[in-house]
């Protein structure tokens, strides 16, 4: 009797359900609350910028994969959608659409596909796009719409400065800390998110909510975000204790700007972060320290993007020299 041939393969014969698309869509889900809140705060502009970034990212990924790299495009794996959302989250909600599209092109085309696509890019694509825009269009990239104003219009909104730039400018002009503190919102408002700033970075609370979801779904581990925030807190705390008149307190630092967004969603990008837990600590401490250095001593009011990109460059080196401790390597059997 001719029986059906059996399939053979090497063990293991079972596999967990988590796949690349599932991981990517989990990240999208984690980002949704912050996106919805952002639309609520900034209005139509936020929605349009995000849509433009996502759609143009998908478009560029498809075109480049199909016609330049000549590989079967796999745009639905979700990675381009995340790049698009993260890019949008890092720009003001009143940014002209054509600038957003340029950002997507740089992010996907130069930041990701030129290195061979998903899995090969040394730098976080969204941040490559963002930093490119920041340097090329400094005016448009640093005029932030004021929350809850002109929510239905897109182009001409009332603009204001972010808390970080208020402080930076103020200290430069020699204003006293106490008077500066009056110009910025309270910490509760930071946590909820009624502050001026890039589209997705405003609500620390909702970003942390997304973080908890990602940890629960085992998409990321706590190591990188917690270490970055802790480093920023400790380092800025030391500076603050040393000179409270010139420096902001640590709580301010971790709640404002791109700290939460960067630590939770950008620094944890699989492709551009270290492979070992010890490596992750080194990487995260580096990001935390450089962020505060740029914020306090640098020319820019915000430094998370630069810090992450700088440490991205160190990841191959970290991976080479910081290996996980293997079983039986450090024996302490008394």
């Amino acid at each position: 009797m001719e029986t059906k041939l059996l399939t053979v393969s090497h063990s293991p014969h079972i596999h967990q359900v988590q796949s690349i698309p599932r991981i990517m869509y989990d990240v999208v889900i984690a980002l949704l609350p912050a996106l919805i809140f952002s639309v609520y705060v900034f209005g139509l502009g936020a929605l349009m910028v995000t849509l433009a970034a996502v759609l143009s990212s998908l478009f560029f990924e498809y075109v480049i994969a199909k016609y330049i790299i000549k590989r079967k495009p796999d745009i639905l794996d979700g990675s381009a959608i995340i790049t698009g959302i993260l890019l949008a989250f890092n720009v003001p909600s009143n940014l002209p659409i054509w600038i957003v599209v340029i950002g997507s092109f740089v992010a996907i085309g130069i930041g990701k596909m030129s290195f061979g696509g998903l899995g090969n890019n040394p730098f976080n694509p969204a941040l490559v796009g963002r930093v490119f825009l920041l340097i090329s269009f400094p005016v448009q990239m640093t005029t932030w719409p004021v929350p809850f104003q002109d929510r239905m219009s897109f182009a001409d909104t009332v603009t204001g400065a972010t808390p970080l730039s208020i402080i930076k400018e103020g200290i430069k002009n020699g204003e006293s800390m106490t008077s500066l503190m009056k110009q910025i919102p309270s910490y509760t408002e930071f946590l909820i998110g009624s502050q001026a700033g890039s589209l997705g970075e405003i609500s620390a609370f909702l970003l942390i909510l997304g973080f908890l979801y990602l940890v629960y779904r085992k998409v990321i581990t706590w190591h990188i975000p917690v270490t970055i925030i802790a480093t920023m807190f400790i380092f800025s705390g030391i500076l603050w204790l040393g000179n409270p008149e010139q420096n902001m307190d640590p709580i301010f630092h971790i709640l404002t700007g791109g700290a939460m967004l960067g630590a939770i969603y950008m620094a944890t990008d699989y492709v551009t972060s270290p492979m070992s837990i010890r490596g992750m600590y080194i990487y995260s401490v580096g990001i935390g320290v450089i962020t505060i250095l740029i914020r306090v001593f640098g020319a820019y009011p915000e430094g998370v993007s630069f810090a992450i990109l700088i440490l991205n460059a160190f990841v191959p080196l970290i991976n080479k020299y910081v290996k996980p401790i293997s079983f039986g390597e450090k024996v302490k059997n008394g």
Binding site: L5, L6, T7, V8, S9, H10
Partner: peptide
């Protein structure tokens, strides 16, 4: 004639570890 259907890495060395091939 085939005796099984091999599934896995497309590499002769690895495939031949299982029943010496298909």
């Amino acid at each position: 004639k085939k005796t099984n259907v091999y599934e896995g890495a497309s590499n002769c060395k690895i495939a031949s570890l299982l029943y010496g091939g298909d």
